[in-house]
Amino acid sequence: MNNVTPIENQGQRVLTSDQLAELYGVSTDVIKKNFSNNRDKFVEGVHYIKLEGLALKEFKNRVNNVHLVGKNANTLYLWTKRGAARHSKMIGTDTAWDVFDSLEENYFNPKPQINLQGLSPQTQFAIQAAQAMAEQERKLAQIDHKVDAISEIVSTSTMDWRRATRDIITKIAHMRGDDYQVTRKDIYKDVEQRGGYSLSTRLTNLRNRMAGEGQSLSKRNKTNKVDVIGNDKRLIEIYMAVVKDHAIKYRVWANEY
């Protein structure tokens, strides 16, 4: 993130829509469309700062890089850390998630440099231990961000949700040295134990309802337990929690940070 031009407004670091789009590997129109279609999920002053009129003019005069703001722009949206996080969740790609993790660590929260020279060995050890603990907490928070992002995708795109969970389970299977189907079966088992449900029974009931509706046998046979989970918001929440626990247990993202 060293090549990102730092911008500050109202005492906090922010990013323009163009910067955010370039970092996340999408067009600026995607950022604008996500904001327009989900405006109720963004709060001014929390997720973004809207500049226009005199405030925009003053900002243009203050920013050194003229390319950050269009010369004829009459409105400018600046995205805070929480706004950038929300956009990464809506985009939902590995690139967007990973880039936000890096933004959170290096751009929005730049680390102060601590000079250990001249300190006693005991003090140096204490500082290094505290830094190691903070690093571990950061890694767990990044894993939370990745998996929680899937939950938000559910409300906008079922296919993206299915693809994201499938990719994570594939990684879990690889870390276990096991077959994908066996790994998914274990996850289903934990979902049933945690929720007190029988996915097999629910799948049978779903297929019976489909038969009663006149749907073809081939379509009924293709219906699986993921379809059952997708029909129940509570089951989705349990499924996400179980996938997350398995990902942490088998250190799926340990090598990414």
Rank of each mutant, 00 (worst) to 15 (best):
S88Y: 06
M90C: 04
I91T: 02
G92M: 06
D94F: 13
D94I: 12
T95P: 04
T95Q: 14
T95K: 15
D98I: 11
D98N: 13
D98V: 09
V99E: 12
F100I: 00
D101G: 08
S102K: 15
S102I: 14
L103N: 02
E105N: 03
E105W: 06
Y107F: 02
Y107Q: 00
F108W: 06
F108M: 05
N109C: 08
P110D: 05
K111I: 11
K111S: 10
P112L: 10
I114V: 13
N115I: 12
N115Q: 09
N115R: 05
L116T: 10
Q117P: 00
Q117V: 15
L119D: 09
P121H: 01
P121V: 06
P121A: 01
Q122D: 13
Q122T: 11
T123N: 08
Q124F: 01
Q124N: 08
Q124H: 02
F125K: 15
F125C: 07
I127F: 03
I127P: 02
Q128T: 08
Q128Y: 05
A129S: 12
A129G: 01
A129K: 14
A130E: 11
A130I: 08
A130N: 09
M133V: 10
Q136N: 13
E137A: 12
E137H: 09
E137V: 06
R138Y: 08
A141D: 14
Q142H: 14
D144S: 01
K146Y: 14
V147K: 03
V147D: 06
V147I: 15
D148E: 15
D148W: 13
D148S: 10
A149F: 07
